[in-house]
Design a protein around this nucleic acid. Structure first.
Lengths: 222, 222
DNA sequence: ATTAATTTTTAGGTTAGTCTAAAAATAAAA
DNA sequence: TTTTATTTTTAGACTAACCTAAAAATTAAT
């Protein structure tokens, strides 16, 4: 078995995230946009990854991860998210600052390392953004969650994750003192722009539709 | 300022360690042996590092790190050793297992990360092998130390480091329950093979000259 | 069902980092 | 001080990972 390079790993991650969110094969152009590399180069890499048995590739038909490719991509996600937990929990980074560093750390190659880190962090199930962390067997814990924008009037929910990961959004949440675990109650909904009047802990404030559509929450009733 | 690649970093480290131990310019062949790459490739890289102002290179004269190159190499040493402390202290790795992983981790690029890690580890001055860790300004703490082989009869010393880092040697020390902080008293010296009869904590045992020449110790009378 | 637009692939080129083999320079030995 | 040995450099080639421009295939639109 040959080694998988960092570059190849980045493609695997991109294919994983694109075909996971779209639910089907990832196209050359989608990957090209995802990782900002020319479509021609992406085609090149598709051939190489296919050679290595990491993806299924037929010309003009897009690509899908093979079992092997999927396992590897899942491990990368696991590493990335565990490192994020480490950076936030142990080194006190803000949740908006950790992505780029974890992007480098995820390529460190040692199963022993990652499993010890997992133990050291006490086997976290979710990262600082609320994204699930696959366990050593690649199993993700599934959580019932809805978007804040789908929560009914006068109901209360707990923030468990974010859909959008852009630093600007995360910094906004920090400024609003909104983080994982925050309790939000819908006081009023404004139809004309879908903005919401909400109560967070003690304070009342207004959230735009954009914000409400990017916050995952969990409600009491299962 | 262009980025310094991982490959280039490996050359800088090799040049640093060769010219530090030899006390002078590092030759093409020395670096070639150190990192197991052909002399021709080393010459190539010397040209590139020279272009970037990281080394001084004159044909057939060997190379020396510039101030800039030295700073970068020192930072790599700092990162490597801090990660080793992390792996041993926090993740409970044995001291023989950490080198390869730290070799990867040292290339992670973030001053913020390394300084927070330093703080998290409580600003250690020495790594698990007793090697000094430069501070954020690149300053190494100097310690008065001698080799166990130089210690006089009936004198006692404390193990503070190792000269040889080979896994086999470190595993041997583990098996002998010899580590940093162990107290050793010389009971007898055998001239014919330079072996030593010593007392370590409560037990008496014999150490070969090879072992005695690779253990750094510190004595009371500074 | 053609034509037009878009997507994907091919062709050909570049750079970093490696190699081997041969040439040139330096160092060691006779 | 010549000759011999060693070290270093040059020359020429290769692979991985990128690029642009053009060709081919697919998809969408008239």
């Amino acid at each position: 078995m040959k080694k998988i390079s960092q570059t190849e790993e980045n493609y695997l991650k991109a294919i994983f995230s694109v075909s996971e969110s779209k639910g089907k094969a990832a196209s050359t152009n989608e990957i090209s946009k995802e990782i900002q590399i020319s479509a021609a180069s992406v085609t090149d890499m598709f051939k190489r990854l296919s050679e290595k048995g990491l993806i299924d590739y037929k010309k003009h038909k897009g690509v899908k991860l093979t079992e092997k490719g999927n396992q590897h991509a899942t491990k990368l996600v696991r590493k990335h998210r565990l490192w994020e937990v480490f950076l936030v929990e142990k080194l006190n980074f803000d949740w908006g600052e950790v992505h780029d560093i974890a992007e480098e750390l995820e390529h460190i190659n040692s199963d022993e390392l990652i499993n010890r880190l997992d133990k050291y962090l006490d086997y976290p199930k979710f990262d600082p953004h609320g994204d699930p962390i696959p366990d050593a067997d690649g199993i993700f814990e599934i959580r019932s969650q809805i978007l804040l924008s789908e929560l009914d009037l006068e109901k209360t929910g707990i923030v468990v994750g974010v859909q959008e990961h852009a630093p600007a959004f995360l910094e906004y949440l920090d400024r609003m003192k909104l983080g994982l675990g925050s309790s939000i109650t819908i006081l009023e909904k404004f139809d004309f722009d879908q903005s919401l009047r909400v109560k967070i802990e003690k304070k009342e404030l207004t959230l735009t539709a954009k914000v409400a559509q990017n916050l995952f929450i969990q409600t009491k009733e299962k």
